[in-house]
Design a protein around this nucleic acid. Structure first.
Lengths: 195, 195
DNA sequence: AATATAAATGAATGTTCATTCTTTTATAAT
DNA sequence: ATTATAAAAGAATGAACATTCATTTATATT
């Protein structure tokens, strides 16, 4: 029998993401995607049940990659500063390496059609939990509700990042954020978290 | 001559926002909007040049309302704590009073089709600038780059808010955030900003 | 009351959409 | 080499789309 050209699926996925990032969910259609990926519309339906399935698959894919990258080299026993900095750096690496993945992710997350089933959490929560517990025990950090911790530990990070990704920075047209700037931000965050 | 029924335009606007919040940009169409607002499709084109014009108009409307509400009773000479708390409260009031406006705004902002022309800034930036300058002079706050200040002062706020709006809070199903919780968050933020 | 005018309409336009159908093509197994 | 099978294609389907057109309706002015 004829064998699947896995390269085709990869192309479809990549082009779909690019189209959505460039033109949003409106302006995205299966026929235009087929043209962009150089396949027949019918071919897409070999790999994906329908449009919704394709979008969900893309989302889950990005979500899992993101979660995996965020925890690369992560040690739950690291100090609060080291652990948080590693996670920030991991996320930045991913975001600046695959900007369209992140933009797609962000756009999808803010859209109403999320069914976040099928998403494997891959021990993310557990790792974070013990990381935070350690920090509290070591007295590097005050006792803070989990949501509040999350908001302080990542809210400013994403906020500053988005300033740069959206080009809303009034001062520079750089695409990345300098490590120094992020380090300065991290120091403020750590100050907030201290006991 | 026949007179315009301004109520019609308001209905169209409201229904459009509700539809987009409920079903996203996909799933939104002029014909379905016409049905939802109980008007003929052609009527929409009396009030809006086309679909894009309608969406931009909605966005600008929400943006301006939001900016106006955020500054209600705001005094640039207030202390950092009072000024920031007032803004947070104003934003919360708006967001919880008109959740669909905020969800629409968030979704639109994350979509690629933003042409943020036509947006009157209404002295927002100036007010914030002098507010921050005052705080620095009074030594309530360290010298911090504007972007970094913004990220610390609002990043955690929106992050915590979104936890609740998206129902991702694992602990409660409440729609609003308690003032106490927000106050606790504000104290952490102020700690971060201190000189 | 008559007129002028813009609001409002329902039906119609041509286009694009998601999806499917039929046919062709490549290859693994025989 | 032949066969079986799934991949891949292109054309086709009907539904939904944005927008416009011809007509009717309401009202402010005369």
């Amino acid at each position: 029998m004829r064998v699947r050209d896995e390269h085709k699926e990869a192309t479809i996925r990549q082009k779909a993401m690019e189209m959505i990032v460039a033109e949003g969910f409106h302006g995205f259609s299966m026929q235009r995607l087929a043209k962009a990926a150089n396949v027949s519309p019918a071919t897409i339906y070999i790999y994906f049940k329908n449009k919704e399935d394709l979008l969900n698959s893309l989302y889950n894919d990005v979500h899992q990659t993101f979660a995996r990258v965020a925890l690369e080299n992560f040690d739950p026993n690291a100090s609060l500063e080291d652990g948080l900095w590693l996670q920030w750096k991991n996320r930045m690496k991913f975001i600046f390496e695959y900007p369209s993945h992140y933009r797609f992710y962000d756009q999808f997350r803010n859209s109403p059609l999320i069914h976040h089933k099928d998403i494997k959490e891959s021990g993310f929560k557990e790792a974070m939990k013990s990381f935070v517990m350690n920090a509290i025990i070591r007295d590097e950090m005050a006792r803070i509700e989990p949501e509040t911790f999350w908001s302080i530990a990542y809210g400013p990070f994403y906020s500053l990042l988005n300033f740069h990704l959206m080009g809303k920075s009034m001062m520079s047209d750089q695409y990345t954020v300098s490590d120094e700037k992020m380090k300065r931000l991290l120091r403020l965050v750590l100050k907030a978290l201290r006991p």
